[in-house]
Design a protein around this nucleic acid. Structure first.
Lengths: 248, 248
DNA sequence: CGATATCTTGATTATGCTCAACGACAGTGG
DNA sequence: CCACTGTCGTTGAGCATAATCAAGATATCG
């Protein structure tokens, strides 16, 4: 009991445990990433490259990563929520560009690259998992490019919601998730999938009218998940990955 | 001399050498990937998942990877040419879906996963490079999503050509490349960036009219690379990567 | 409650899609 | 050498979708 209180739930550990069983050493290595905490208010803009030697774990709250194009044009690269490690992509690249914006009140846990090395050295199994999750991200990007290419606004929005659902349901006890909180504005959604806020609104209205899903008061309800998936040929990449080749 | 004839140029080795110096052992490890050869005729459809335990090195010719959506709709995921390793993404994933299509006469070198393990075990430096090139691919996908979102057809086509140019100039002696062969049809280009062949044609015409570039008889000439890059905010991710953290 | 942000709706415009026809070109076989 | 064929690129007309601009309705938060 007191044990549990000293080691409260970590979304990061929860996430990793979804894919593989963790040894207590693994768990400790992950816990090391969340020792520091910084709290940010909603709608705070963070220069990502302020300290390129540090990565972040999102402990609570929603954050997105974006890039300014011209005036009035932004591109939202990725949406992050609790359990995500931000910055893995840039470890290997020279220029870590892009900025972040908090959506809600947010707690980030910055940690130095070196703690990543600790994982690489001490846990081949966790290393393999991190590598796989990187590859997964790539596959998901392929899917996103697929849908962004030549499909209607409603399809794009549907895909966006389903991808979000796929990522979130990992944290649901039984992997079932009919409704979830989604604090993003339609502006942000639009910038993520290449539509204007107006088109997002219209698409939402239509999806709701056809009974697929509703999206009100920051809450998404997917009434017809399977039909929705079938309509756009959605495949959930997140729930299962191939761990058979992992060491140990 | 006779040495050179017994070990002819390999695009793969050339590519790797662009980023880091290779030991003779590294070189040997890479050469091991190209021991087998299979030749395919133009426009040959290859099921990628025929043998998921094997990867390919493209030795000569152009190939692209695609997925059928509905009838008449395809999505071209990635274009491969000599020196590319195909299938790295799928090593870690359960489902290796998608198919390949040869554009020109093509020589592929299939090799088993295990040879990849040889590299992982024997050359941390090559391993780090392969990892970094994977991350790079992700960054490039971000750029592609960025341009596919909300930009005009000419911008999309320009981006496509510039990305191609960025990948190809690695193999140019001085990194300068004004013109290059490009055997893809406008249909394929369209499926890669989410346009119809008609729109690609119109965009090409306009880009040519404005003096940026021309594209005739399978040859691309970039007259105003810098202006083109500036117009769409293009960044060349391929030429330089951060190797400072590599082992050894 | 008031102030701001967000969402919805409508009218108009622009961009790219669809369908279709035509021309250029390469490869083939007589 | 010349039709014959199929692929590929170009061009045009009409249409569909989403962008833009703008006004009004709702929600959210201090």
């Amino acid at each position: 009991m007191s044990q549990q209180e000293r080691q409260p739930t970590s979304c990061l550990i929860e996430r990793m445990r979804h894919y593989i069983p963790l040894t207590s050493q693994d768990e400790q290595l992950l816990r090391e990433l969340e020792t520091d905490e910084v709290t940010y208010r909603p709608r705070t803009r963070l220069r990502f490259s302020d300290d390129p030697t540090h990565l972040f774990v999102v402990k609570s709250g929603w954050v997105y990563r974006f890039e300014e194009l011209e005036e009035k044009r932004r591109r939202v690269i990725r949406i992050h929520y609790p359990g995500d490690i931000v910055g893995l992509t840039d470890v290997a690249m020279k220029a870590a560009d892009g900025e972040m914006m908090t959506v809600t009140k947010t707690v980030l846990c910055p940690f130095p690259k070196s703690k990543l090395d600790d994982i690489f050295i001490n846990s081949p199994r966790l290393t393999a998992l991190l590598f796989s999750l990187g590859v997964l991200k790539q596959v998901v990007l392929h899917d996103r490019i697929k849908i962004m290419g030549r499909s209607s606004a409603p399809h794009k929005v549907a895909h966006f919601l389903l991808e979000m659902h796929a990522r979130l349901r990992i944290h649901s006890p039984d992997g079932v998730l009919g409704r979830f909180e989604m604090p993003l504005t339609q502006d942000v959604i639009g910038d993520a999938i290449g539509l204007t806020n107006v088109s997002v609104s219209n698409a939402m209205t239509q999806l709701a009218f056809e009974g697929y899903c509703t999206c009100q008061h920051r809450e998404v309800i997917l009434h017809e998940i399977d039909k929705l998936k079938e309509m756009i040929g959605f495949r959930d990449r997140y729930f299962e990955i191939d761990t058979s080749w992992f060491p140990q």
